[in-house]
Amino acid sequence: MLLITSIIAAILTIIFIKLSFAVIGLRRKNKVGLGSGGHEDLERAIRTQANFAEYIPLGVILIACLELNGAPWWLVAIPGVSLIIGRLIHAKGMNTPPPDFSKRVLGMKFTFFTLIALVALNLTWSLYRLAV
């Protein structure tokens, strides 16, 4: 079962829906059907949503692999929480006018550190399971 992954994926999906509604709201407000129409706030919202969509799938896949391979719940939960925190900080940094690049960078550091940690955890745990 993927209980921890399910919780993490559900939380991340809620965040993605919120980011998507922000894009939709700004499209309606600015009467833009495609692209950003030159509106900086809409461009930031689009990029925040797209950046989220670019990084989250690999993270969730790696979290699920770790859980499916029998890693302890806490070893699955910690990177999941870290990924959620990183994405929230990044989104806040991107969507607070003017953009707060320190939060954006911190959010990306959390995200990259988490993805790198998940790669290392998956490789280590898989090799450990093969050896045992």
Rank of each mutant, 00 (worst) to 15 (best):
M1E: 05
M1T: 12
L3G: 10
I4G: 08
S6H: 10
S6K: 11
I7R: 11
I8D: 06
I8W: 06
A9R: 11
A9Q: 11
A9P: 06
A10V: 13
A10G: 09
T13W: 05
T13I: 12
I14T: 15
I17N: 07
I17W: 06
K18D: 10
K18E: 12
S20C: 04
S20F: 01
F21P: 02
A22N: 14
L26I: 01
N30M: 01
K31V: 02
V32P: 13
G33W: 01
S36D: 14
G38I: 03
H39Y: 06
H39S: 01
H39R: 01
E40R: 03
D41A: 04
D41H: 00
L42W: 00
A45I: 02
A45H: 03
I46K: 01
I46A: 00
I46W: 01
T48Y: 00
Q49I: 09
Q49H: 13
A50S: 10
A50W: 05
A50K: 13
F52R: 07
F52A: 07
Y55T: 09
I56Q: 05
G59W: 03
V60F: 05
L62E: 07
L62N: 04
I63T: 09
L66Q: 04
L66N: 04
L68Y: 08
N69G: 14
G70H: 02
G70E: 06
P72C: 09
W73S: 15
W73R: 12
W74D: 13
V76E: 05
I78T: 15
G80N: 13
V81R: 12
S82D: 12
L83F: 10
R87N: 08
R87S: 08
H90T: 09
A91R: 03
A91Y: 01
A91C: 02
K92L: 10
G93D: 03
N95F: 00
P98I: 00
P99A: 14
P99K: 07
P99D: 07
S102Q: 13
R104K: 13
V105L: 15
V105G: 07
L106P: 04
G107T: 12
F110C: 09
T111G: 06
T111V: 05
T111P: 04
F112L: 14
F112Y: 15
F113L: 12
A120T: 14
N122A: 03
N122Y: 02
L123N: 09
T124D: 00
T124F: 01
L127F: 11
Y128T: 04
Y128A: 02
R129E: 06
V132P: 07
V132Y: 06
V132C: 07
